[in-house]
Amino acid sequence: MGILGLLIPISLGLGMIGLLAFFWALKRGQFEDPDGDAYRILRKDYDERPKP
């Protein structure tokens, strides 16, 4: 049973990391243009160097 004291906080912490990542993505506007982002990942424009 003692292991629960370790596992529950760990699972909650992992979930919290996911939630924070979601907040970050939301704040960065990653849900504004789902259609465009699906295509953007396939283009080669900034393969050589990042966008200035």
Binding site: S11, G15, M16, G18, L19, L26
Partner: peptide, 14 residues
């Protein structure tokens, strides 16, 4: 709304 949905999902799963 999307943020609340995200929080609800996190809480629900846990």
């Amino acid at each position: 709304l999307l943020m609340r949905l995200g929080v609800a999902f996190f809480a629900m799963m846990n």
